[in-house]
Design a protein around this nucleic acid. Structure first.
Lengths: 128, 128
DNA sequence: ACCCGATACCTTATGTGACAAGGTATCGGG
DNA sequence: CCCGATACCTTGTCACATAAGGTATCGGGT
């Protein structure tokens, strides 16, 4: 027993809570952004931070692996582009397959939101 | 290399997708139900299945450990009750602490929902 | 009398995404 | 000349969800 673990092991509190709730959401967010137009990774990081109003605090360690997964599954396509600069960027485009998948994700998400709303609302009234 | 893995490794498809999206949601759902009145575990299973309209397909292996975690952190209290039957039930009540936590969870959840809505809506218009 | 499905509780092994932390390299300013 | 921003990446750890499997009781149906 060295330095008493500064916080209880299983309680990073609000940060963990937020993280768990937002789980799976990043994929939806990323594909949505890409459905408008192509973007490169670092750009996505900034776009998501702005758009989500701080709610979607995507980290680099989350985004890059996610992009690789989406690429592997054929939902997006990557192309390196230099555009005259020596610091090249990796642009991602959504594929038709990705659009189909995105539609599915949207459906799932609104289903969940509706389900939760109903559950929360219903409960307020039950009171039985 | 025995029987070719019936489905690609990382693609349990819709089930996984749904699971990841709903992550963290169960805690909110359970505490919400308990905020109305006390329930025992198996009962929660059924209540959640009904209320959530199939969206919140809580499994036993998810619920019981969750209840233990909530108990350990003082958000709920458990009491065994026989009520004349030989098959006793373990009833859970929400604590004041749990109510505070629930409020926090609700806030986080609606923040996420709002953030996502905004992001999805905004994107539809940007089109830039 | 007997078995089975529902009721009720539980645990262990596995998967998966999020993240912290750390790495590489370029470029523009001060 | 160095530092912070731009850009990309990886590895180790955590926490939750689930599949699968266990124990035990009870009420019906045959």
């Amino acid at each position: 027993m060295a330095e008493h673990t500064e916080a209880a092991p299983g309680s990073a509190t609000i940060a963990r809570l937020r993280r768990e709730l937002a789980r799976g959401t990043t994929e939806l967010a990323v594909l949505s952004v890409l459905s408008v137009r192509r973007r490169y990774g670092y750009e996505l990081l900034k776009v998501l931070r702005q758009a989500g109003e701080g709610v979607l605090e995507v980290k680099e360690g989350t985004l890059y692996p996610l992009l690789h997964r989406l690429e592997d599954s054929g939902h997006i396509l990557a192309t390196w582009e230099a555009e005259g600069r020596s610091r090249p960027r990796k642009y991602y485009v959504i594929t038709p397959d990705g659009r189909t998948y995105l539609a599915m994700l949207r459906t799932e998400w609104s289903g969940l939101v509706d389900g939760m709303r109903q559950l929360l609302d219903t409960l307020g009234e039950v009171q039985e």
